[in-house]
């Protein structure tokens, strides 16, 4: 950003949107900054610092859990509201967002909109059926996280548009979620992560969303694995079948750290293990 000339510090979302609208192409929103400091875009002349616009709250409402775009990963991982909402998988993913230092800086908005293959929040938000709320000077709209990450989110946002909030729908009464990630060390770019949201009905799985991240550019649902689960009992054999389906359907990109074959196999193991955890949680809520 060799042509960066100034910072703006708007104190409301509206003011931020006005600044972004005023300098299309030249003004860029700045959330935590961990990625933006490496950006080389010569068009950027103004950084619109979002640290004063609010959007930090994490609250539980009737329509679900609201995550402000400027809430940090650390805050999400520790929020009472996340625990109260029964979204253990979300807390687990937030706690996996790099080291503690980086968790203090990484924001929900930045992690989702600045998507990388190793971003930890998008897979779990996708699994939980979360919706992103977008605003611009021209108005507001909503987009499911699933749609948002179908391409790079930055390309989904219109010029001057900000993601202001993520809404995670209320966990079903017999629901459970879990997130598992696998790295070489405790703090590492994930080699593969899997997020799962399950809903039990009676003694069977009523609904399942299984999402894999880290294996290619964008996270994605494993639909064959999901359909293996629905209508079946939450038992080991079913989870193993889902894992097999996941391994068969998952697309794996190259990664210099480990072979595709290994990461495909790893995905299967993680799917099975994360299903066990989610199912226990779902059953626990039943009890």
């Amino acid at each position: 950003m060799k042509n960066l000339a100034e910072f703006q510090y708007p104190e409301s979302v509206e003011a931020a949107l006005a600044l972004l609208a005023a300098s299309p192409g030249e003004a860029r929103p700045l959330a935590g900054g961990t990625s933006l400091v490496f950006a080389a875009d010569p068009r950027t002349r103004v950084l619109v610092d979002l640290s004063r616009v609010g959007l930090r709250s994490i609250t539980l409402a009737a329509d679900g859990l609201h995550l402000g775009a400027m809430a940090t990963a650390r805050a999400v991982g520790r929020a009472r509201a996340v625990a109260d909402a029964g979204l253990a998988g979300l807390a687990e993913a937030a706690a996996a967002c790099g080291s503690r230092l980086l968790q203090n800086q990484i924001t929900v908005g930045g992690n989702v909109v600045g998507l990388y293959p190793w971003s930890d929040l998008p897979p779990v938000l996708l699994a939980l059926g979360a919706v992103a709320r977008l605003r611009s000077a021209a108005g507001a709209r909503e987009m499911s996280v699933e749609d948002l990450v179908a391409r790079h989110p930055r390309r989904q946002l219109k010029p001057g548009e900000l993601m202001v909030e993520i809404v995670v729908p209320p966990a079903p009464r017999h629901g459970g979620s879990a997130f598992l990630t696998f790295g070489r060390t405790a703090v590492d770019y994930t080699l593969c992560d899997v997020a799962v949201a399950l809903e039990l009905g009676g003694d069977a799985i009523k609904a399942a969303r299984v999402v894999v991240g880290g294996l290619r550019l964008f996270p994605g649902r494993l639909c064959a694995a999901e359909s293996t689960l629905v209508g079946e009992q939450p038992v080991e054999a079913v989870f193993a079948a889902a894992a097999a389906a996941a391994m068969a359907e998952v697309q794996v990109a190259n990664d210099f750290r480990a072979s595709r074959e290994y990461r495909r196999e790893l995905c299967g193991v993680l799917v099975r293990r994360v299903l066990q955890v989610a199912a226990q949680r779902a059953a626990g809520r039943t009890a």
Binding site: F7, L30, L47, D49, S51, R100, L101, N104, Q105
Partner: peptide
């Protein structure tokens, strides 16, 4: 605590 090498001074 923040890692100041990934924070703009302006922040």
């Amino acid at each position: 605590p923040l890692a100041s090498c990934v924070v703009f001074a302006g922040q």
